[in-house]
Amino acid sequence: MQLAELNIGRLLAPTDDPRVKDFMDNLDRINGLGKRMPGFVWMHEGSGEPGTGNTENAFGDNPQMVFNLTVWEDLPSLEVFVYKTVHAKFMDRKAEWFEVLGEQHFVMWWIEQGHQPTREEALVRLDDLRTNGPSDRAFGWDEIRVKSLKS
């Protein structure tokens, strides 16, 4: 099994606004780093236009709602990328670029090797976590850490 993750956010401003310039200017750098990490498997891609990441694939009725959807060989690989690379410095700055969402915006779940989840599939997993709480179908960082401590 491999680990899929979805992270959604609502930008504070349109992608061409100076308020989110630092974020937009570094998307290719951070995504490129992720793709070179040991354990990286796959990323849902946008158009490939430089500096857009996956932001042109906004969803809902708000063009500032963006997402990141990736697959990793295992949890430790994802954790190293998220918390032990320059990615962590950009996470620390998320309040500069993203609105605080009043509900769960991140979900992980296990998938069969070779499967590439769709945005719609990922949003169903996020809704499952929001509605039913953590389970084997959908979970977050806290749940997986607690489970690891109990093992």
Rank of each mutant, 00 (worst) to 15 (best):
D74Q: 05
V146N: 09
V86S: 14
V82R: 01
P76A: 00
S135C: 00
T131C: 09
F67I: 04
V124S: 03
S135D: 05
F67Y: 14
M91Q: 13
K94C: 10
R145C: 06
D61C: 03
T70M: 14
D127V: 05
T85H: 10
Q113H: 13
E121Y: 09
P63Q: 08
H115V: 07
E120Y: 04
V100D: 12
W72H: 07
T131S: 14
V71K: 01
F67V: 09
V71H: 09
W72V: 01
A122G: 12
E120C: 05
N62F: 04
P117N: 13
L129W: 04
F98K: 04
N68K: 01
I144R: 15
R145P: 00
D136R: 07
E79L: 12
F90W: 13
E96L: 05
P117F: 07
E79V: 08
G133W: 10
W109H: 03
D61M: 11
V80M: 10
E120M: 02
S77G: 11
Q116T: 15
K147D: 05
I144A: 14
L123I: 04
Q64G: 01
V124Q: 12
E96F: 05
W141A: 15
R93V: 06
A88N: 08
T118W: 03
D127Y: 09
I111G: 03
L101P: 01
V66Y: 09
V71Q: 03
H115C: 07
F139K: 02
F67D: 02
F90H: 11
V86L: 08
K147M: 11
E112T: 15
M65A: 05
V66Q: 08
V107K: 00
G114E: 06
K89V: 04
N132P: 03
K84H: 14
F81D: 07
F90E: 13
V107W: 05
V146E: 15
S135H: 01
D74K: 03
E73S: 06
K89N: 14
W72Y: 05
V124P: 04
L75D: 08
R119F: 14
V107I: 10
